[in-house]
Structure formats: C-alpha cells, structure tokens
Simulated assay, not measured.
Amino acid sequence: MQFVLIGFSDLPNLQAFLFAAFFVVYITILIGNFLIILITSMDPALQKPMYFFLANFSSLEICYVSVTVPRILFNIEKQDRRISLMSCATQLCFFLIFGTTECLLLAVMSYDRYVAICNPLHYSLVMNPTKCTQLAAISWLGGIPVQIVQTCQIFSMHFCNSNKIDHFFCDIPPILKLACGDTSVHELSVYVVVMAVAALPFMLVLTSYSKIIAIILRLPTAAGRAKAFSTCSSHLLVVLLFYGSATVTYLRPKSMHSPGTDKLLSLFYTIVTPMFNPLIYSLRNKEVITALKKLIFQKQGHVDT
C-alpha cells in the first residue's frame, strides 16, 4: 500500500546541502516566474499574444515544479521517504498532465512566433484574443484525459519486485521496474502516449522554426535578421533543454535505464529548465527588461514617497 522514494539517500553527508540547494532553486523558480506573470499582466506594452502565452508558461512552471520539489524537501527534512500508493499515483498524474501542457504550450508559442515573423500583416487578425484563449485552454486541458488513463493503467499493475522507487519522485520508468511479469504492453503504451503528446508537438515546433529560419535568412539586412531571430531564439533554447532531456528519459528501452542517469536527466526537465526559463526569456527580451525596470522603479518611488 506504500512505496519508499530512495531519492538522494545514498548521499547521507550531503542532506543539509541538498535541502538548501533545492529550497533556493524552488524559491528562485517561484519568484522568477511570478515576476514574469506580474509584469506581463500589469505593463500595457506587454499586452500581446506572445506575452499572454509567456504568462501561461510561467504559471505552468510554478505548478510543474510544485508537484515534485516540495515532496523532495519534505523527504530530506523529515528523513521519511514513505509515500502511499494513492499519493504516488496523484503525483505522477499531475506531473504527466503538466508535462503534456508544457509540450503543447511550447508548440503554441512556436506557432505564435511563426505567424508573427512569417505572416506579420495578418498577425493581429490570426492571433486574436479569442484564438489565444482557445489555444491556451487546449494546452492546459488537452493532456488531462490521456494522462489520467495512463496513470490508472500503470497503477493497475501488480508490484512485487520491491516497494523502493530509486528516484526522487514517482515517475514512469522507475515504477515500471517494480512491476511483476512482462511490462512490454505498458512500455508500448508509454511510447504511444509520448509520441502523441510530446513528439507530435515537437515536430510542429521544428516545422514552425524551419519556416521561421527560412524567412529570417531572406531578410535584406543583418540587423533585421538579428532582431527577428532574437524574438524566437530564447523559446528555441527552452524547447531544446526540455525536449532533449525528457525525450531521452521516456523513449529509451527499459533495459537502458539506470537510476543515476534517470535522476540526472529528470533534474533537467523538472527543475533546471523551469529555473532558467525566466532568465532566458527576460535577459534576451528588451521589452521584458524594460517592463521589469519600470516595475522596480515604481516600487522604489512608492517607498520613497
């Protein structure tokens, strides 16, 4: 009726350091993404589809890391690594739903950049507020039925090998290792779902960016090419970080999974990418930097008065 999350218990001398590191990273993610939500909602200059999706993306990152990191902090602080079957299933389900949302939202954001660069005259018509809201809703809700079914399917298996999950949260690869008998059907199901909710959106991202790059290369001036590429290079970097680590994790055969490699790869798409997203988007975007400075100076002005 319960599992044990091994996590980082094989590093007994580093428990205090790990707690401090995860705590600082979690607070950094919350503050960074909350600031993006704040400035994109308050600054009139950022009332554009691109920043509407960026605010959705930052909201998603807060939800995404909150599924795993608080549990990691609790396990390290209390040194109690037990997790009930229901809690494990709930964590996995929400993790998969938010992961699917991230895949879909990254595809939507690449489509937004495609329309802005390849069809700028019709941008405001195509990416109207209704269309933006619909695309965001599809991204948030699209993965819910699929991932609920997949979670129920995984936890309908019998577990007899052990109750120890050699990971820092409930994820599919380490849970499948604990299942009795042949898990090939379940592995195939995972591949099919990953292809549908991750690989297909990734192909849409690649298609969008191949057309964007083709248009950029045809621009007459170097300054024009640099400006056009700067608006989408940050998004492309986030896509590569997230998809690179997640794809290797879920599309490798079960026999090639090792606890150390799985944990390292999982850290990238569960914690490292959400931590760098606000930095990537703000440092490479002059409008976001300007809005942030304006917000800081307004706060200082209120304090001075």
Rank of each mutant, 00 (worst) to 15 (best):
T133K: 15
K78Q: 13
Y123L: 02
T130D: 12
V126E: 11
C132N: 11
I62K: 05
T151Q: 09
S124E: 15
Q91P: 01
V67M: 05
I72W: 03
L73Y: 04
F95P: 04
R71W: 08
V69C: 03
L106N: 02
F159A: 00
T130K: 14
R82L: 12
N163C: 07
A136L: 10
I62G: 04
L141S: 08
Y64R: 13
L96H: 01
G142L: 10
I72Q: 01
N163V: 01
T133I: 11
A107F: 02
T100Q: 06
R81N: 15
C88P: 06
I154M: 09
F159K: 02
G142Q: 08
L135D: 08
Q153H: 13
L96S: 12
S87Q: 15
Q153F: 10
N119P: 00
I83Y: 09
I138Q: 07
I144P: 02
Y114E: 07
I62A: 06
G99V: 04
N163W: 07
N163Y: 13
L73R: 02
I62H: 03
L135Y: 10
P129W: 05
N119Q: 11
V65Y: 06
G143L: 07
T90K: 14
N161D: 08
V67F: 11
L125I: 13
H122L: 11
P120K: 09
C152T: 04
C88L: 04
R113G: 03
Q134M: 15
M109W: 02
N128W: 06
H122S: 14
S87M: 11
D80Y: 02
I117V: 12
M86S: 13
D112R: 10
R81K: 10
F159Q: 00
D80L: 08
R82T: 14
L106M: 14
I62Q: 05
Q79V: 02
K131Y: 14
M157Y: 12
S162R: 06
S139R: 04
V69G: 03
Y114N: 04
I83E: 07
Y64I: 06
Q150G: 00
M109I: 05
F94D: 02
G143N: 08
A116L: 12
V69P: 01
S110D: 03
I148V: 15
I76E: 08
T130S: 13
I138R: 10
I83H: 05
Q150L: 15
V69S: 02
Q79W: 01
N75R: 09
C93Q: 12
T68K: 00
S124T: 13
S124D: 15
M86W: 10
G142D: 09
I154V: 15
V67T: 14
Y123G: 01
E77F: 14
E102G: 09
N75P: 01
L104H: 05
L92R: 05
Q134D: 07
R82P: 03
F95I: 01
